[in-house]
Computed example of a mutant assay.
Amino acid sequence: MTKTLRLIFPQWQGGNNPNYVFGSLLLGHIVPPGDKAETIQIMIDEDTSQELSIENGVIGGDGLLKQMSEATKVLVEKAPDKVITLGGDCSISQAPFDYLHRKYPDSLGILWLDAHSDMSTINDSQKGHMHVLGNLLGQGAPQFAEKVCHPFKVEQVMLAGLKYEELRPCDHQVNDLKMNYLTPDKLVDDSRLIIDWITQNQFKHLAIHFDLDVLSPQDYRSINPGKPYLEIEKFPAPVGAMTLEQITRIMKDVSEQTEIVGFSIGEHLPWDAINLRKALESVEIFRD
């Protein structure tokens, strides 16, 4: 019998954004429950009042390493066949994808649905969520990359929805490593190019990283650039251009070609719920 483990992983230090905690917990209620999956919440440092220090070249690095180690421990003890991870910032994918690569060493590919590369080094950025895919490739932040016991090869990864024309200097490894990538315009009408990549590499299993920031804030508002009253043109990073309908089509199409054994969702920022919660916290009756 196939064993599925659902990790609720409200890790926030990788993006240095405490709002990711609530976003992760809310995802636990939004995502369809499934009939047989076991759910475990990874314990994190919930003290968001203190400014994070830089450790190992990464903001909040020690806490991140501790939490990733805890996630790895849970995965090894539970030994699931499939892992669903509900974050949290994008660094939540490191432990489960590394675990799955050990379980499926010769047949696993990664589909990284993201407007950004997540392949920066500590010389480019000190935020852990910007290193995670680099870590999984044995690059990224050294103290984190060395924790990856089963690194992936470039050909095992497809960046889909990447805003390649807006790459920043911190994204240089996309070109340095000659990564496979597909821009949003290549995925508007069909998933053929992703299917071709799966077929050519004979991937029997697939791990999907779904950064909600791959979506356009005009289509889906619960993301960083979807913050109320934000002027999009002033957002300091490339803004996603895909629709939820397109992403759903891709998921369905790839599931007909290979078995999805890993699925991470990151960067969930439900602004209306976050703002309502903060507003109510200021009212005395809700503090009793």
Rank of each mutant, 00 (worst) to 15 (best):
247 I>Y: 00
211 D>Q: 01
188 V>G: 00
190 D>M: 02
187 L>R: 01
183 T>W: 03
264 S>T: 15
187 L>K: 05
249 R>A: 04
274 I>M: 01
256 E>A: 10
230 L>G: 02
178 K>M: 06
217 P>F: 03
189 D>V: 06
220 Y>N: 02
220 Y>H: 07
186 K>P: 04
248 T>A: 13
262 G>D: 08
198 I>S: 02
263 F>S: 01
196 D>S: 07
280 L>S: 07
283 V>G: 04
201 N>D: 00
273 A>I: 15
269 L>G: 08
274 I>W: 09
194 I>A: 00
288 D>M: 14
213 D>G: 05
255 S>D: 12
284 E>V: 11
202 Q>P: 04
196 D>Y: 00
285 I>E: 08
273 A>E: 12
232 I>T: 08
206 L>E: 10
244 L>A: 13
204 K>G: 15
238 P>V: 07
221 R>A: 13
251 M>N: 13
235 F>R: 03
206 L>S: 06
237 A>F: 15
221 R>W: 11
266 G>D: 05
214 V>H: 00
192 R>D: 09
269 L>D: 09
247 I>F: 01
239 V>T: 15
262 G>R: 07
256 E>P: 00
209 H>I: 11
286 F>S: 09
283 V>C: 07
183 T>L: 02
236 P>Q: 11
239 V>K: 00
258 T>I: 02
271 W>A: 06
198 I>V: 13
242 M>F: 00
207 A>L: 04
235 F>W: 15
270 P>H: 09
254 V>H: 04
190 D>P: 01
271 W>V: 09
222 S>K: 05
266 G>H: 06
180 N>M: 01
229 Y>S: 10
236 P>K: 06
239 V>Y: 01
247 I>P: 00
280 L>W: 08
250 I>W: 07
198 I>L: 13
241 A>C: 14
187 L>Y: 04
223 I>G: 01
189 D>Y: 11
227 K>E: 14
236 P>A: 09
206 L>T: 07
217 P>Y: 09
216 S>G: 03
249 R>E: 10
220 Y>T: 03
256 E>N: 12
217 P>H: 02
187 L>A: 04
201 N>Y: 02
222 S>W: 05
196 D>Q: 09
287 R>N: 13
188 V>M: 02
214 V>C: 05
219 D>I: 02
273 A>Q: 15
249 R>F: 10
185 D>H: 10
